[in-house]
Simulated assay, not measured.
Amino acid sequence: MQRVCFLLKVREDRKDEYRERHAAVWPDMLAALSEAGWHNYSLFLREDGLLVGYLETEDFDAARDAMAATEVNARWQRDMAGFFEQSEAADEAMVPLTEVFHLA
């Protein structure tokens, strides 16, 4: 099982709405993530907008590709695009950090 951690930056003026959106993620989006192999997926948002994502999956590239093939993910990415400082889509900007320590 791969443990994947990534960083994104939420625009300061959209943090509250970002939290609200994630308090009510669409049921079909949740189902698609599970079906695509995303497990123990968490997002943490710091007050300055730094977003830390963590998930576990058998194969991150395959899990990301599986989500990219879904219609619900396309809708979600369109709706969420304006929340981030980076210009590329959030799914494309998820660059995994290198794990340097893990306490099993």
Rank of each mutant, 00 (worst) to 15 (best):
K9R: 15
V10L: 08
R11H: 05
E12F: 00
K15T: 08
E17I: 05
R19D: 03
R19P: 00
R19V: 15
H22F: 08
H22P: 03
A23H: 15
V25S: 05
V25F: 02
W26T: 02
M29Y: 10
M29F: 12
M29E: 10
L30T: 07
A31E: 14
L33G: 11
E35V: 13
E35P: 09
A36C: 14
N40Q: 09
N40H: 10
N40M: 01
N40S: 08
Y41G: 02
L43P: 01
F44N: 11
F44R: 11
R46T: 06
R46Q: 15
E47T: 07
L50Y: 04
L51C: 04
V52T: 09
G53D: 03
Y54H: 14
E58M: 04
F60Q: 02
A63R: 03
M67A: 08
T70A: 01
E71D: 13
V72R: 11
N73G: 07
N73R: 11
N73F: 09
A74T: 12
W76C: 05
D79F: 07
M80G: 04
G82M: 07
G82Q: 08
G82H: 11
F84I: 08
Q86D: 11
A89R: 09
D91R: 10
A93P: 01
V95I: 14
V95N: 07
L97F: 14
L97S: 12
L97V: 14
V100D: 06
L103T: 09
A104H: 14
A104D: 11
A104S: 12
